[in-house]
């Protein structure tokens, strides 16, 4: 556990910086309020006030921690203020989009590896799709689907899938092409079919690449879902929570939602990592 010391050092440095920034950014409001009330504040009073404002420019770490704690444990799960509810809404759309994106990425990769025509025609579009800002696409997708009567989870999942298919596609193309000429020659000496080459060689070879891409993909799916929750005037989800917080200047709410999203992302990446460890170990690819 020698690594615990540097980790704690970095963490405390970040928290110290954060507190310092909170003082710097919030003190103006304290002084303005005091001037309006015609009183003077000492430095000690100012410092104390910057730590407990209701709508600080930058909430102090303990305020965000309290916001998170209240959001997760202090509310009924069905309450609009419950971060459990909002996280669940975002999580379910993220998972749907991640599943969709992963399936699309894998299928396209299989096509690209096996067909030169697909390699030439699909890959440029896949790359082009990622150069368009998702913020520009998301509202259009949501408006178009809403006009078709599709609302709720599906439009969000589609946008999440749009972001998450790409890393999976790129990783799987690389992974399915990982077997070297000798390994392919070996299967030719057995007169193996294309399907046998795929199932017995290409697919198992691609597994480490797949999991590396899935970690990127699941985080991208979460970002896509949150972005999709912003423009629709959605009332549920971490994105909606972010947006309503910014409407009303509820900075603590914004930061709490941000941290909830970060915790969710970290948890998802962690879960993918755990599955990766187990699968690769079962395959004998981890020593």
């Amino acid at each position: 556990m020698r690594s615990i010391l540097p980790i704690l050092a970095v963490l405390s440095a970040i928290i110290a910086l954060w507190y310092g920034a909170a003082v710097l950014l919030n003190k103006q409001w304290t002084y303005d309020q005091a001037a309006r009330a015609g009183v003077t504040v000492t430095t000690a009073q100012m410092l104390a006030d910057t730590m407990m404002q209701e709508r600080p420019v930058l909430p102090a770490p303990h305020q965000v921690a309290k916001g998170l704690w209240d959001g997760f444990t202090g509310q009924k799960i069905t309450s609009k203020k419950s971060l459990v509810l909002h996280s669940w809404i975002t999580f379910s759309a993220t998972m749907a989009g991640f599943g969709l994106g992963t399936a699309a990425g894998i299928l396209l990769a299989v096509g690209i590896v096996h067909s030169r025509a697909m390699d030439m025609s699909v890959m440029p579009w896949a790359i082009a799709s990622q150069t368009i800002p998702i913020l520009a696409i998301a509202p259009m997708v949501i408006v178009v689907l809403a006009s078709l009567g599709i609302k709720g989870l599906i439009p969000k999942a589609i946008i999440a899938a749009y972001l998450s298919f790409f890393p999976v596609l790129v990783g799987m193309v690389k992974g399915l092409r990982a077997p070297d000429a000798m390994q392919l020659d070996l299967l030719r000496t057995y007169n193996a079919s294309g399907a046998e080459t795929f199932w017995k060689l290409r697919l198992p070879s691609s597994m480490p690449y797949l999991f590396a891409s899935l970690k990127v993909g699941v985080a991208a799916a979460l970002v896509g879902t949150i972005v999709a929750e912003l423009p629709a005037g959605a009332s549920q989800g971490l994105g909606a929570r972010l947006l309503s917080g910014s409407y009303y200047g509820q900075t603590i709410q914004i930061w709490s939602a941000l941290f909830a999203a970060a915790i969710l992302a970290a948890g998802l990446v962690l879960i993918v990592g755990l599955i990766e460890g187990r699968v690769l170990k079962r395959m004998g690819m981890v020593r």
Binding site: M182, Q183, L186, N191, P204, G284
Partner: peptide, 15 residues
């Protein structure tokens, strides 16, 4: 399938 071929590297599947 009239021959078996042994390559320079063993080329065993690690999985």
């Amino acid at each position: 399938r009239s021959y078996g071929y042994v390559f320079q590297a063993a080329g065993l599947y690690p999985w």
